[in-house]
Amino acid sequence: MNMGMVFAILGAALAAGLAGIGSAWGVGVAGQAAAGVVSEDPDQFAKVLLLQLLPGTQGIYGLLVTFITLSRIGILGGTPVDSVAKGLAYFCACLPIAIVGLISAFHQGKTSVASIGLVAKKPDQFGKAMLFPAMVETYAILALLVSILAVTNIH
């Protein structure tokens, strides 16, 4: 296996790994808060579950970029990477979702905890509470788009 292939696989692994770590952290901490609310008020289960799930999307975005990359570099399909430059190109293309996914999931987790606190105290404010963590999602989506566009346009 040449170095180009190594860089391409490393990029794909980071996309799934870092974004997944961020999501696991975010969903975990939001889950602790959600469990706290449900232990006192079980009727809020559906609302706090939705808020808990929001930081989980970055992990899915990372996985998506990883699949697209693997399907283009000869692992799940496509042609094997034949140069270091091309391998580095795939590596760099994966970085936006890897880095932004990690950081945005971390902050989205914290925002979800705050929103769960808001729903716990004022259940009727659920709509507004959803918006705060959803705003953080914007930047994960932008990073996802950049990564997909970059990965699919490497020839």
Binding site: V29, A30, Q32, A33, A34, A35, G36, V37, S39, E40, D41, Q44, V113, I116, G117, L118, A120, K121
Partner: peptide
């Protein structure tokens, strides 16, 4: 600090009463 998430969420519900 993160482990306070559970305790604080419970407290938020209790604050209503």
């Amino acid at each position: 600090d993160l482990e306070f998430a559970y305790a604080v969420a419970r407290i938020r519900v209790r604050e209503k009463s």
